[in-house]
């Protein structure tokens, strides 16, 4: 009795990447990524280099979860955006439904510009993700990948 899995197709992934690329260019950001509220990285664009995006995704989700918990305690539904400004690098996080849009930027950009561009990209990402969620609910039940997993497949993961 866990949640319905989220199933993202290649075509949807391509559309998300296109939105993230445009956002990155328009906002002069270093890295832009989309993360599931539970901390799973969905897509990333930019100067990733040695950046540990998996850990960053999990921590961004933890950060949003913690501030969301604080919001509820003071009678707010959630804090829809979070910004952390450092000496050189900064992070802006925006909640879009069940996902988080995370923008890492430096002094080539500014928080105002990032916020403006994020607002525009959010609408497009929300539309794509609504479609993913809708299709996931419809297809999870007869998904050939999931239905095709055998006991042998599962055992083979642990054979070595």
């Amino acid at each position: 009795m866990t949640d319905t899995p989220i199933i993202m197709r290649e075509q949807q992934y391509g559309r998300i990447i296109a939105v993230l690329s445009k956002l990155r260019l328009d906002s002069f950001a270093r890295v832009v990524f989309l993360v599931d509220k539970n901390g799973q990285e969905i897509a990333v664009q930019g100067e990733v280099g040695g950046l540990d995006t998996t850990s960053l995704a999990s921590l961004a989700a933890g950060n949003v979860a913690a501030t969301g918990g604080m919001a509820k305690l003071i009678g707010e539904k959630e804090f829809p955006t979070l910004s952390h400004e450092g000496e050189r690098e900064s992070i802006h996080i925006c909640i879009i439904g069940r996902t988080l849009l995370v923008v890492v930027f430096d002094d080539r950009s500014s928080l105002g510009l990032v916020k403006l561009r994020v607002k525009q990209a959010s609408r497009e990402l929300a539309t794509i993700f609504e479609e993913i969620t809708r299709e996931s609910e419809q297809t999870a039940q007869d998904n050939p990948l999931l239905a095709g997993i055998t006991d042998d497949d599962i055992d083979s993961l642990f054979s070595s």
Partner: peptide, 15 residues
């Protein structure tokens, strides 16, 4: 919540 990514061919689960 499991996340299945057909683009990167990954199944992600949380324990």
């Amino acid at each position: 919540m499991t996340f299945i990514n057909y683009a990167s061919r990954e199944i992600n689960c949380k324990i």
